[in-house]
Structure formats: C-alpha cells, structure tokens
C-alpha cells in the first residue's frame, strides 16, 4: 500500500520522476542529456569505419590483382582468408593486443584483416568474371597491361567487388563494438558502459544507432556503385 502511494506521488509530478530514474529501455531524456557523449561515440565509430575501409581497399586491390594473375598467390590468399574468418573477433583483438598495444590501432588492424578476407574474394571473383572478349578486344586495340587493368578489368569487376565492399562495411560497423575492450569501440563503448551500470536506455540507444549506421552505410555504397557504373543503370541489383 505504501509503495503504491509513493508511486502515485511520484507520478503526480515529482521533479525526479523520469525515464532515466525508472531505467526504461526507451528514454528520450537519455538522448537529450547525453547527446555529447553519444555524438562522440558515433564519431569514433565512423572514424574507425572510414580508416578500416580505406586501408583495406588499398591493400585488397594489389592483393586481388596478384591473386588473379598468379596461381600460388591465389591459393595463399584464399587459404589465409579462410583461416582468418574462423578466428573469433574477441580472440583476434586479444591476440593483437601484445603486438600492437592498447589503442584504436589494434581495433583497426583486426577489422582490416576481417574486411580484407571479404574484399579480396569479391575483387578476385569480379576480375575472374570479366568477359574474355572484352579483354581480347582491349589487347587487340593495343592496350598495355596497366591500361587494360585500369580501363577494362577493374570497371567491369566493380559490381561484384562492391558486393564484397558492402558486406565488409556492414560487418565492420557491427564488429567495431567489440573494440570497447580497448576503449575504442565507438558505440560499443556505450553498450559496455550500459552493461556494467545496468543502464537500459544507453544499451538500446547505442544498439539502434549502430544498426541505423550500418544500414545508412550500405545505402550509401549502393548509391556509390550506381554512380560509378552508369552503364549498369536499369540492371537489377
């Protein structure tokens, strides 16, 4: 009886009664009062994603071209990527810790390794699928190896390569959360804080933002692919 009465007093308009105190999952007050913290986490998340994608694309291009041309490189690269993908992220982060140290760099290196496995496979598959006639025609027109790669093979490999890039980007957004181990998990830091302090709104808000970020990045990449491959507009997927 006393509890009920106290509750009704609180609900009747006490200043202290709000969703933060009641520890509700959905709490706009959390978002408004902690907006700086949330934005900082989001910023870190996006920064880690951008650096990871930039480094992996730069590394994946030469690796894929080499793997496309040389049989043993292909075997090695595809074999290594199978092994890398069986290593759990927690293990990967922890194993890199003694090598690289307690920093965002460790997170980025781990994420680059995971992205590379998908990116290289996508690029190699794309290069393999370039029609022989297109290559023959270019060679017949006197294209050198470099020009052939740049003007014929890579553009034609783009759609398949982009499928890999989308998977890599979306996975990276989700995987970054484990970076909280190094205090560099972006929104994952908030999830971890929420777990230790039993703060529901923090966990749910960070999770939802993480999913929204992944979806936005995916849509952006679809747009980018359409912009880069104008000859494919109107072709499904």
């Amino acid at each position: 009886m006393i509890d009920v009465a106290a509750g009704s007093v609180l609900h009747a308009g006490s200043v202290a009664d709000n969703c933060l105190l009641r520890n509700e999952w959905v709490c706009p007050l959390y978002v408004t009062t902690r907006s700086e913290q949330i934005l900082a986490a989001l910023q870190q998340h996006v920064a880690i994603l951008l650096v990871t994608l930039a480094v992996s694309v730069l590394l994946a291009l030469p690796l894929a071209v080499l793997a496309h041309r040389t049989a043993w490189v292909r075997g090695f690269v595809l074999g290594a990527s199978t092994v890398v993908y069986t290593i759990p992220s927690l293990a990967m982060f922890s194993l890199l810790l003694p090598v690289i140290g307690f920093s965002a760099r460790t997170v980025v290196v781990a994420l680059v390794l995971y992205s590379l496995t998908v990116l290289v496979r996508g690029l190699v598959a794309g290069l393999d699928a370039v029609p022989g006639e297109a290559v023959d025609a270019a060679v017949g027109m006197g294209y050198g190896r470099w020009r052939l790669l740049r003007e014929v093979q890579l553009p034609l490999a783009l759609p398949t390569a982009f499928a890999g890039l989308r998977i890599a980007a979306v996975s990276t957004v989700a995987l970054t959360t484990i970076g909280f181990l190094f205090d560099s998990g972006g929104l994952g830091n908030l999830v971890n804080q929420g777990l230790t302090s039993y703060f529901k709104a923090e966990v749910l808000t960070a999770t939802v933002l993480c999913v929204v970020l992944a979806v936005l990045v995916d849509l952006l990449l679809v747009g980018l692919r359409r912009w880069l491959t104008p000859w494919r507009r109107g072709v499904a997927a």
């Binding site: 995987l175 777990l195 992944a214």
Partner: peptide, 13 residues
C-alpha cells in the same frame, strides 16, 4: 550482419 552480436547479447542479459 548489421546487428552487433555483443549488443544483442547485452540487451538480452
């Protein structure tokens, strides 16, 4: 792919 496992686990916990 878009849902982080760790976050989902924490939500359930």
């Amino acid at each position: 792919r878009a849902v982080p496992t760790y976050a989902l686990l924490v939500l359930l916990v």
